[in-house]
Write a protein that binds this DNA or RNA. Structure first.
Lengths: 263, 263
DNA sequence: CAAAAGCGTTTTACATGCAAAACAAACTTG
DNA sequence: CAAGTTTGTTTTGCATGTAAAACGCTTTTG
């Protein structure tokens, strides 16, 4: 995975490798044995033993039903949810996203930009229709989705150019921008309209409306979006209902974050 | 917090302390500085520096707006959700919990026993009424809630006695059992009825129906429960509607887990 | 405004975490 | 069923991570 720049005197190798053990166990399909973990990390079994010993005694990993195999322990959950709950936008937006879901009867989501990726912080699933797989904690490439364009709409052209630099943009659908210029056009459209409506931009058969959320300094810090299968979308009411309602919810959240600028 | 039995030759102190840094940052109200972290862990600043240096370069923590203060980084989310998604019962139960929520129009939850605690793995909120605060990842004391009694209903009296041993049971409400014998009565009731209906057992003004979920070996591995404010509960239909529907959902999940026993 | 206290960082002698080798037990396998 | 592999675990000498002390720097404070 990520190759480690070990060559710093300040690095704590034990910590680095222990966390990699957790990530490997997290990415694994099932329980792993000591040897498997050691092999996956190109580490001697004796070292793997010490890491596992430590993690096990701290309850960060636990032995699976099958002896001598390990899975992630429940203690890692605390870390993840601590992070979620520390993001102010998560808790602030929750009631608004739920209300929006109830009003327009389509799934609603909150996301932020994390590096090159869109990170989903929370979802409120529609009651009916098929359930979107955009669960909390999921990540997608920012350049490839309408939500990503929303979150990037705050960047200047220079920053956007920088963002694209070490990015190999592959086309998921015909709508995916694969060059900086193409992406710039999408982002510019968001800047002007204040929202994106997309139909099949990322997933064929799925439609979405995305609106940026701003904080007290006016920066885009998150994105509210609604999404559902084309079958559940009333396309005649996009402009008159979905967009204004989503914009209104995003603005309410922005206001709670201290945003004082224009709607 | 948890005092560490350092005195093992196999312990990797760097890993242990690095994880404690993450937990301390997770429990903290806001960003912390290097010195604050060092003080919280009774660690020299130089050691704290090395841990923070490592965690920062791995994106497990990140610098906050204020210079030289740190918060949890988004990378910890991966660990938490990897754990959630690895629990088979989480994904299996999701559609059933959603369907149950839609049918009975009350919030539904899934939980498991983790040590002494009930750990909530997933929730599906009711559309109307007040939103329960039982968010995913939350923990509560098992002895003190109807859900806990459900999850404990698989334990023999001896195991239950062991469970109570180093547990100081304090009364949250008049219904909270504060002795082993009192708890045994509650658990026995679940064993016989196969469900618990509770009204104000843990939270005054809140009602709940909880039903155990079993796996292929017949063991209780999780608990399905519905809950809502008394105002949203139709008490006349508890026996004729809520209980049978919740039991049916729990049984469907149990069947998917390979449970072959009687309903 | 100077002294003092606090901060993040760097250095360095020393203690100690680490990986290779050795070990015993549990599997394969010809 | 015995030779050979692979497993989890223990040992041990050497390399290396570590904490105290030292270092600038900023922020209090009298």
């Amino acid at each position: 995975m990520t190759e480690s720049p070990n060559h710093s005197v300040y690095f704590v190798p034990g910590l680095q490798r222990g966390l990699r053990v957790l990530e490997i166990l997290g990415a694994a399909a099932g329980p792993m044995s000591l040897s498997e973990i050691g092999r996956a990390m190109e580490l001697s079994r004796s070292s793997a033993f010490r890491l596992i010993y430590t993690l096990r005694h701290m309850d960060f990993i636990k032995e699976a039903e099958q002896k001598n195999t390990y899975t992630l322990g429940a203690r890692v959950l605390n870390l993840g949810f601590a992070y979620l709950n520390q993001q102010p936008v998560t808790s602030i937006s929750r009631p608004y996203l739920a209300a929006l879901r109830d009003k327009i009867e389509v799934s609603t989501h909150l996301s932020v930009l994390e590096g090159e990726e869109v990170l989903y912080l929370g979802s409120h699933q529609a009651r009916s229709g098929f359930v979107s797989n955009m669960a909390t904690g999921t990540r997608t490439q920012a350049y490839a989705s309408a939500i990503g364009w929303c979150l990037l709409s705050d960047l200047s052209d220079e920053e956007l150019s920088l963002f694209c630099e070490d990015l190999d943009m592959v086309a998921f659908t015909d709508h995916t921008p694969t060059t900086f210029e193409a992406l710039k056009v999408r982002v510019q459209a968001v800047r002007e309209a204040g929202y994106v409506f997309s139909q099949g931009f990322r997933d064929p058969g799925g439609s979405s409306v995305a609106v940026p959320v701003r904080d007290n300094s006016g920066n885009v810090v998150a994105c509210v979006n609604i999404s559902g299968p084309d079958s559940g979308f009333d396309f005649d009411r996009v402009d008159t209902f979905y967009v204004p309602e989503t914009k209104a919810a995003a603005l309410k959240i922005s206001r709670e974050l201290g945003y004082a600028g224009p709607a």
